[in-house]
Write a protein that binds this DNA or RNA. Structure first.
Lengths: 203, 203
DNA sequence: GCACGGATATGCACGCAGTGCAAGTTGCTA
DNA sequence: TAGCAACTTGCACTGCGTGCATATCCGTGC
């Protein structure tokens, strides 16, 4: 059909893709990221090493592919919020899509543990989340009052919110996942938005 | 000799180190990060490839070593600020150490261009700057009023400030370096700290 | 049913990053 | 002058990532 060039192939592809990612993550979690070769991942998934590169750009992507999808999901939710709504409110609401997406808490914990255990993974993670602001900023900008550098402002707000999410996440892990993530998120947001402690301004 | 284990050797080492970094960065800027092999860098600096690894952990470090030093310099300045001072004020003041450190604006621009041109460098950059919060947070925490999650709050503030610096930096590059960086920084901070906006405000 | 085009899987060879090891080399110290 | 300790370098090896060539599979048009 003209409308659906190859719906079946595409479907297969995405199934295989997530299968590969899952096998990889399990192996990484079990043996450690650095101690796991792509050869092993390929073998465990029943494909050739070369084929992995047909689905993922590199080893890192194999571990972090989920992040891009999360970003898109959040952006989609953000786009649904009314424009009159305050940016921070919209962002918080959008972030909550994570609770729908993320599988079990244990899998989430496994993923984060994996992430924090390796420097280049942490870096890739930081970058991918930082790039979320490219998705969010255009959706936030219309919510801001006219002024100079409105674009910069939108990006700053997006970035700051993401940063709060990250901080909350780190703390959440540190506490072993026993607390509600969004309680921590709220605490973080409040901390940065609370007016300066009483005294004066500077020059 | 007890007091100064080997002051001369140490001195030499740091000189060589910065020489290597400089040669590398120039080559990276000229030919592109990915198109430059460590072999070439080593040759240009007159050492062996193996020796590079005596000074830097990996190729990325060769390009980003400056960032760690910046972080430490900022932290040092931050530690000097009075504890009664508002955290945001202290942070802004500490950031200004960058103006003393950073060499010429053109070199700064070269560096940033290099940075934005390569994904893994961007990632490394993001991670290294994100880790600044580990340095800053302990210095910020004493400035906060007692409450729950004070540690989280300190990290959130540090991270948010860093984020504003990054956003300002990106905008600064986008504008070709024609504006004062800290004007942009202030705009970013103001944007995230401004109380939620009722949709329409006065001008 | 059959041949074709496009997408996919796989193998092979190669370049390059990064590491361990072992053998020189240099400069400081006793 | 002997010797130690840090530094340099070469060599070999693992593993990631890529280009290329081949084989296979699927859907389409004849």
């Amino acid at each position: 059909m003209a409308q659906k060039p190859t719906p079946l192939r595409e479907q297969t592809r995405s199934v295989v893709r997530s299968l590969l990612a899952r096998t990889a993550i399990e192996l990484f979690a079990a043996k450690g990221y650095d101690n796991t070769t792509l050869e092993e991942v390929a073998a465990a998934a029943g494909v050739s090493r070369r084929t992995l590169f047909n689905y993922f750009r590199n080893k890192e992507d194999l571990a972090l592919s989920g992040l891009s999808e999360q970003g898109e999901a959040i952006a989609a939710r953000l786009a649904e919020r009314p424009v009159e709504e305050d940016a921070w409110t919209s962002l918080r609401a959008a972030f909550q899509v994570l609770e729908d997406i993320d599988t079990t808490p244990e899998r989430r914990l496994e993923m984060i543990t994996l992430l924090f255990g390796n420097e280049s993974l942490r870096a890739g993670h930081a970058e991918k989340q930082a790039r979320w602001q490219d998705l969010f900023a255009p959706l936030i900008e219309p919510r801001l009052p006219d002024s100079d550098h409105r674009n910069l402002q939108a990006r700053a707000i997006a970035a700051a919110a993401i940063t709060c999410l990250q901080a909350a996440n780190e703390e959440w892990v540190r506490l072993g996942g026993q607390v509600d993530l969004f309680d921590l998120y709220d605490a973080a947001v409040q901390a940065i938005r609370r007016p300066a402690s009483p005294p004066e301004k500077m020059t």
